[in-house]
């Protein structure tokens, strides 16, 4: 696949050197790792059969996760509009554009869990921190998509509306909105699906939802309950994806 033999062998040598270096520099407790297979066997045997007897706790966690996802998607969807408009170079003035793009890059770079733990420190444990985390992630995601759609849309239609003497807000609702609305709704629904997936992890740092239940069960070595939670999460994610695909299919 790589024609030059020197380059091909060079890359191979480099790869081996990298492996040696990285494995050598990692602080790996080989003794502990060697017990892995053994431990995995024990953990898996304790996982089966999954324990659904505490279903009320499970249901509470799932409901909280779904509610967090719904609330965050709705708030994020609305707040993403001003951010998206500000981050579109063909609408926003240069300084506004740069600030908005900066916010987008900053919020996109940090993993949700990092944002979640900062919110937990500010607002304490519970779903509020989780909702805020998902709101930030949603604004960032939908806002970026919106900005790109606005930049890629036809400026001609906007120009025509401007030429009628319409004010900026009216240019937005007649010249911009009809062009981007279908995609915006689609992206928002997709984000709802993503929020359901992410709502299962923010709980691990104490930001509410099913993740908190999962984390607690793991720390208590309650592995049969953990598996029940994991299966529920997989089911939930599956449903979320199915719902999102169905709605987006209908929007088209």
């Amino acid at each position: 696949m790589i024609e030059n033999p020197l380059l091909r062998h060079g890359l191979l040598v480099l790869a081996v050197m990298y492996l040696a270096w990285s494995l050598g520099s990692l602080e790996i407790d080989w003794g502990r790792t060697a017990q892995g297979a053994d431990r995995a066997g024990r953990i898996f045997s304790r996982m089966f059969p999954p324990d659904f007897s505490r279903w009320s706790l499970l249901l509470k966690g799932v409901t909280e996760s779904v509610e967090m996802a719904l609330a965050a998607s709705f708030i994020g969807m609305i707040l993403a509009i001003p951010l998206g408009l500000c981050a579109a170079s063909n609408i926003a003035p240069k300084p506004v554009y740069l600030v908005a793009r900066g916010i987008l890059v900053l919020t996109r770079t940090f993993h949700e869990v990092i944002i979640a733990i900062l919110f937990v420190k500010i607002f304490g444990f519970g779903p509020l921190a989780g909702v805020l985390t998902l709101v930030v992630a949603s604004i960032s995601f939908i806002g970026k998509m919106l900005a790109e759609d606005i930049e890629n849309m036809g400026n001609r239609q906007m120009e025509a509306i401007r030429a009628t003497g319409a004010s900026f807000p009216k240019v937005l609702i007649y010249g911009v909105m009809p062009q981007i609305l279908p995609r915006y709704l689609g992206v928002s629904i997709y984000r709802l699906d993503a929020n359901i997936r992410h709502s299962t992890v923010v709980g691990i740092v104490g930001a509410g939802g099913i993740g908190q239940t999962l984390s607690a069960s793991f720390s208590r070595y309650d592995y049969d309950f953990s598996l029940a939670i994991l299966l529920t999460i997989i089911g939930l994610v599956f449903l979320g994806e199915f719902f999102s695909n169905w709605v987006r299919g209908r929007l088209r």
Binding site: L26, E27, I28, D29, R32, T33, Q35, G36, R39, A40, I43, I204, L214, S215, F218, Y221, Y223
Partner: peptide
């Protein structure tokens, strides 16, 4: 979470 339980904490 799962792999920490299996292999212990670490990379």
């Amino acid at each position: 979470l799962l792999f920490v339980a299996i292999f212990g904490p670490g990379p």
